[in-house]
């Protein structure tokens, strides 16, 4: 198992495609950072324009490393899942297409082990991608823009988190985000098992994520109670929950608090359920699959 995992990771990191993901994330983040370095104030103004008449908004202070990190994460909502799909969708289908799958299957490894190991390799890749994203979007932003309190714009409210209360939220959010991305990886992985070329599963995963995200975000009553609670994209946003600081009756935020911790945990459980569903379906299908590639 360990040998196979080494092999799978070696393959992932020997493939040029893998580095497209790391390169793409670096490019997107650095471009956003450069843009915000020069025009950040306008962007904050755009977000908070409705308050400009009432309040003196310290734009320069708001545009700090923490805020930029959060802004970047919002802009990457669709990108990172695509990059995860790029590798996960290739894991089985790519080998089928290349013809190496049949050689792998004739090795003394059970199909279940083979698939679990491949999936685990995807998980490791996803984790490394998240660490890379975290480094660029948080560490680099903080180095470039410094730290201050984090102001979060929600649809109906504005939350301010003291700067000493921010870092743990980021760590928790990245942890949660990793789980969300693993759902994407497992979906892509399942589709990969069903296909003999990697384009199909990658495109299908991306399409599903886009459609689901739109459905999650549209506020249409017929979806709100019926479909939305079951879409994994709704729950993938749970990482944001760590930034929704709670407040007392007076409206003063409480350091170290979270508004809807139980909702986050519920989302977490649902995401784990999805991972389990997708991976076990992949295994069941793969075990019975005739390898004709």
């Amino acid at each position: 198992m360990w040998n196979l995992l080494q092999f799978e990771l070696f393959k992932i990191f020997k493939k040029p495609r893998t580095y497209i993901a790391f390169g793409a994330i670096a490019a997107i983040i650095l471009l956003i950072q450069i843009a915000l370095l020069t025009n950040g104030k306008e962007y904050v103004k755009f977000m908070l324009s409705s308050l400009d008449d009432t309040l003196d908004i310290p734009y320069d202070q708001i545009r700090n490393g923490y805020w930029i990190g959060f802004a970047i994460l919002n802009l990457l909502l669709i990108h990172v899942p695509i990059l995860v799909a790029l590798v996960a969708g290739d894991m089985v289908a790519g080998e089928a297409n290349m013809g190496t799958l049949r050689l792998l299957i004739t090795k003394p490894i059970s199909r279940t082990n083979l698939l679990l190991t491949k999936f685990f390799a995807c998980v490791i890749y996803t984790f490394i991608l998240v660490v890379w994203t975290a480094f660029l979007c948080l560490v680099v932003s903080v180095l470039l823009f410094g730290t201050n309190d984090l102001v979060i714009s929600k649809e109906f409210e504005l939350l301010q988190i003291e700067k000493t209360d921010v870092l743990w939220r980021y760590i928790a959010a990245f942890g949660f985000g990793t789980v969300g991305l693993i759902v994407v990886a497992s979906l892509s992985f399942l589709l990969s098992v069903l296909s003999d070329n990697s384009i199909g599963p990658i495109v299908a995963t991306v399409a599903i994520i886009i459609v689901f995200t739109i459905m999650s975000e549209m506020q249409i009553p017929i979806y709100d109670k019926t479909v939305k609670p079951y879409l994994f994209t709704t729950h993938m946003l749970g990482w944001k929950g760590f930034f929704y600081i709670d407040s007392d009756v007076d409206g003063q935020t409480i350091k170290g608090s979270i508004q809807h911790f139980s909702s986050i945990m519920k989302s977490f459980a649902i995401l784990i359920g999805y991972i389990f569903l997708f991976v076990s379906s992949a295994i069941i299908i793969f075990k019975k699959k005739d390898i004709l590639s």
């Binding site: 977000m47 409705s50 714009s153 649809e155 109906f156 946003l237 749970g238 944001k240 508004q259 989302s267």
Partner: peptide
């Protein structure tokens, strides 16, 4: 004590995590 205007954010930019039922003020 001061008057406030409605807080609005440009549509489609927040992508809120909406486990809490969104309620307009």
């Amino acid at each position: 004590t001061f008057n406030t205007k409605d807080y609005k954010i440009p549509k489609g930019v927040t992508f809120d995590y909406s486990e809490d039922q969104k309620k307009a003020p």
